[in-house]
Simulated assay, not measured.
Amino acid sequence: MTQRWLDDEQQRTWRAWLTVTELLPRALDAQLQRDAGISHAAYVVLAMLSESPTSSRRMSDLARRANQSQSRLSHTVARLEDRGWVRRERSTEDGRGNVAVLTDAGWDVVRSVAPGHVDAVRAAVFDPLTEDQARALGDALGAIMERLDPDHSLRVRSDGG
C-alpha cells in the first residue's frame, strides 16, 4: 500500500491549523489575564456555570463542558474557590457527586469579563474573515466534529443538553 502524504494545500492548511490552535488560546489567555487575572480554562468554567439555569453543574458534567479532565477541573475549581467565585456542594440529587456552584462574586466576574472576552474572540477569529469565510469555517469545523464524534457522545449539545 502506498503512503498518502498531504498535498501542498493540505500541508499549508494543517500547519495553519496547528499555529492557530497554539496562538488563539495564548491570545485569549492574555486578554483574560489582563482583564481578570484568570486563565481561559478558568473563564470557561465560570461561563459554563453561568449558562446553567441553576448556576451549578455536577463536576463530571462541568469537566466535559469545559473540556478538562476531572483532575484539571478539580484544580481549576479549587483556584476559583480560593477567590470566592465558586463553591462545591454535595449533589442534592443523589448525595454522592459534587456540584460546582457559581457564587454572586463569580457572577460579577463573568458579567464584567464577558464583553471583553467576546471582543477578543471576535477580533481574533471573526474580524479577519468575510461572512462567507466565517460560514465556511463553521461548516468545516462541523464536518470535522462529525468525523471525530459521529455519535455525538463526546460533545455537549449546543442547546445545553
Rank of each mutant, 00 (worst) to 15 (best):
V125S: 04
G160W: 07
M145T: 12
V99P: 01
D82N: 10
L102G: 05
S56K: 00
L46R: 01
A114Y: 09
L18V: 04
A136T: 14
R96K: 12
A123N: 06
L46S: 02
A140W: 10
T130D: 12
R111G: 09
S158L: 14
R79P: 08
D108M: 08
D35G: 09
A136D: 13
L24M: 13
R157I: 14
R65W: 05
Q70N: 07
T13I: 01
D139W: 08
L49E: 02
G95D: 07
G160R: 02
Y43G: 00
L46D: 03
D127Q: 10
T54F: 04
N98D: 15
A134K: 02
R12H: 11
I144C: 07
R15A: 11
D159V: 14
R88H: 09
W5S: 01
E131W: 12
V20R: 02
L32K: 00
V101I: 08
A47Q: 02
V77S: 03
R111Q: 13
L102D: 08
V20D: 06
L23A: 13
R122S: 13
D104P: 04
W107K: 07
L129I: 03
E131P: 06
V86D: 08
A140P: 13
A105V: 09
R58Q: 09
G97R: 03
E146W: 03
R157T: 13
S153Y: 05
T13Y: 00
G142V: 11
E22A: 15
E81Y: 04
L49S: 01
A143H: 07
Q68R: 03
R57A: 14
T19N: 02
W107I: 11
I144F: 11
W14T: 00
S74C: 05
V156G: 06
Q133A: 15
H152E: 14
R57S: 13
Q133P: 09
V110Y: 07
E51N: 04
R65H: 08
D119H: 07
R155A: 15
V101L: 09
D159R: 05
T54H: 03
T130C: 12
P115H: 05
Q3V: 15
P115Y: 06
M59W: 00
A78H: 05
R83M: 13
P25A: 12
D61L: 06
R111Y: 11
E9L: 04
Y43T: 02
W5D: 00
T92L: 14
D29R: 05
L28D: 09
R87M: 11
T21K: 01
